[in-house]
């Protein structure tokens, strides 16, 4: 019957929702260039939520053809969309930043093969407990044969000395060479490569930041002092809340000094910030 379609009966689930809720109706205010839409809804816990969406209306001067194309009627799957972006197809993604690569060593480093390297290294350090071969004990060909290797080829007296040297008695390199002794390493303490090369002289540490600080806020805070190459905001892994401190690598020492002079003791978000030069990392051995 066509009459039924006209009176649009909603499904029973919607019906219950509507009757049980005493939420104020949504409102839409247009105020000099800003469209403010307020929607009330209930969240998963049944608590009332007020959602305020503020849209900025922008007037742009464009060429006639572009303006004309803006008046075209939507078609296809968008034929029934209202003017303006449809939230189903157009989603504002989370804020991202362009990561500038300043140090030249940084991108020469084949960092993506780290896993493969680790895996390769693990193979070389594997030692069978049954026959001392370079395979897992489980996969030993002498497994369950009762074979006991004789230890004649490694006299115990020489054992200690051999362990220190990366050569064994057949004059060929042993399986494991510590990272600092490998080709290309610059010596002890350079195992992590890039960590040592990073220039920390223009880096400052900001502390006593409030929990709600985001990268964007931080960027706004430090931008006036000059160009920076890296921003690091310490955040909790699970909640994403700020842990209270951040490191900023400036490009120039002067901007870093200015930033410290201004930001140390600066009131920000009800807290008083502390700014200092970033201290070099303590080597952990």
């Amino acid at each position: 019957m066509p009459a039924i379609e006209d009176t649009k009966i909603s499904s029973w689930a919607d019906e219950v929702d509507e009757t049980s809720e005493d939420l104020p109706p949504p409102s839409e205010v247009i105020d000099n260039g800003l469209k403010i839409v307020t929607v009330y809804r209930r969240n998963e816990d049944g608590k009332k939520e007020k959602l305020i969406c503020t849209y900025k209306t922008e007037k742009r001067v464009v060429s006639k053809t572009v303006a004309f194309r803006k008046t075209w009627k939507k078609y296809g799957a968008s034929a029934n969309d209202k003017p303006g972006p449809n939230p189903a197809t157009t989603i504002a993604a989370e804020e991202t930043f362009m990561q500038f690569i300043t140090s030249k060593e940084d991108h020469d480093k084949p960092d993506d093969d780290l896993l493969e390297k680790l895996r390769g290294m693990a193979d070389k350090t594997v030692k069978c407990r049954t026959c001392n071969g370079d395979h897992w004990t489980l996969k030993c060909p002498f497994k369950d044969t009762g074979y006991m290797p004789t230890k004649v080829n490694v006299p115990p007296a020489l054992d200690d000395k051999k362990n220190l040297m990366p050569m064994d008695d057949k004059n060929k390199p042993s399986k494991y060479i510590p990272p600092y002794m490998r080709d290309g390493a610059k010596g002890r303490g350079d195992a992590m490569g890039h960590r040592g090369q990073r220039d920390d002289s223009c880096a400052i540490r900001l502390s006593n930041l409030s929990e709600s600080t985001q990268e964007v806020d931080l960027e706004e805070l430090v931008r006036p002092f000059g160009d920076y190459s890296k921003l690091f905001l310490a955040k909790d892994k699970n909640t994403g809340a700020c842990k209270g401190f951040a490191y900023i690598h400036f490009k120039h020492k002067l901007s870093a000094a200015n930033a410290i002079a201004f930001l140390d003791g600066h009131g920000y978000d009800h807290l008083i910030l502390a700014a200092e030069w970033s201290k070099p990392q303590v080597q952990q051995h």
Binding site: R60, V62, S63, T65, V66, R69, K70, W72, K74, Y75, G76, A77, S78, A79, D81, G84, P85, N86, T89, T90
Partner: peptide, 28 residues
């Protein structure tokens, strides 16, 4: 002019978008 963006995919329907605000003009 850059006011429209066209996209095609392995599904059978290309789309036309306004590049300024991401509004979809339509699907073909």
């Amino acid at each position: 002019e850059g006011d429209l963006l066209f996209s095609s995919a392995k599904d059978h329907v290309p789309n036309v978008w306004y590049s300024l605000n991401g509004e979809r003009l339509g699907s073909l």
